[in-house]
């Protein structure tokens, strides 16, 4: 018996392909908790905390305070979405699915790439949902700010996709988001996303600038405010992304060596 090796070949890009992303996306949207937490909750928070009439009349940059809060909430939504996208690996490892995937041509690096793309897709949807709700509910921003604040909130949320992956590999839990949800809320407070930092005392406000949410918020709001130290914010995002990505790689290497 001859084995027709010639007819067998490895897939391109280590198995990374749109078909898998489409199926994974469909599965994520089937999970009601994901939908509520990442798409609906940030918009609801915005409606609750950002739409009082005094906020709508107070001007900031070329927009109103409601618009300012909308950007913060969009950042929050993008953070939640990308973190939970990255943290999917935890559930899948717990279920033994990663082991099953090792019986396919899918390379571990391609698997991580799929998770990152998924995280960024739902992050984009989360920002879009928040912005549509905001536009309807009275947020005012200059046209350029609508575009750039949205894009920056989304792109900078990559730091949390790395964070989600890192935690997903670190915490072998079925419901890792129940731990990470509160963590993200605390980080959002500490990073000045829910309450402006100048309302904190001086030492705390300084410490806050070193927490991971601070940079993302500052950068995302910059097209509106043109205020604050942009380079410090960029440095914050770069350092935290590098740190989380390094952590994710470290755990990922251990994981693939072991299984």
């Amino acid at each position: 018996m001859t084995v027709a090796l010639e007819s067998r070949s490895l897939p391109k890009f280590g198995g990374f392909n749109p078909g898998m992303i489409a199926l994974e996306l469909r599965r994520m949207l089937r999970n009601r908790r994901t939908v509520v937490f990442t798409f609906i909750m940030p918009a609801v928070f915005f409606l609750l905390f950002g739409t009082s009439s005094s906020y709508k009349t107070e001007r900031i940059g070329g927009g109103n305070l409601t618009g300012y809060i909308l950007i913060s909430m969009a950042v929050y939504g993008a953070m939640l979405a990308t973190t939970s996208g990255g943290a999917m690996v935890s559930v899948e490892r717990a279920a033994g699915w990663s082991r099953q995937l090792r019986l396919t041509p899918l390379r571990p690096a391609a698997y991580v790439a799929v998770k990152l793309v998924l995280a960024m897709i739902i992050g984009a949807v989360s920002v879009a949902v928040a912005f549509v709700v905001g536009a309807v509910a009275g947020a005012e921003l200059p046209a350029t700010a609508w575009v750039f604040c949205g894009l920056l909130a989304w792109v900078c949320a990559l730091v949390f996709a790395a964070f989600g992956l890192f935690m997903g590999y670190l915490l072998p839990s079925e419901n890792v988001m129940q731990i990470l949800g509160p963590v993200l809320a605390v980080l959002s407070f500490a990073g000045g996303l829910f309450v402006p930092l100048d309302q904190f005392g001086e030492p705390f406000a300084t410490i806050a600038k070193f927490t991971p949410v601070y940079g993302v918020g500052e950068i995302a709001r910059y097209p509106l405010t043109h205020d604050g130290n942009l380079w410090l914010a960029v440095l914050n995002v770069v350092v935290w992304t590098a740190l989380f990505a390094w952590g994710a790689m470290w755990r990922f290497r251990r994981d693939t060596a072991r299984v």
């Binding site: 084995v3 090796l5 067998r8 070949s9 490895l10 599965r27 089937r30 999970n31 899948e92 279920a95 033994g96 699915w97 082991r99 099953q100 090792r102 019986l103 396919t104 041509p105």
Partner: peptide, 18 residues
């Protein structure tokens, strides 16, 4: 495995409920 020459039915785990 990657070439699909060999595949397996494993004892437990390996499926996603959703």
């Amino acid at each position: 495995v990657a070439l699909g020459l060999v595949s397996a039915v494993m004892q437990t785990g390996g499926l996603l409920k959703d």
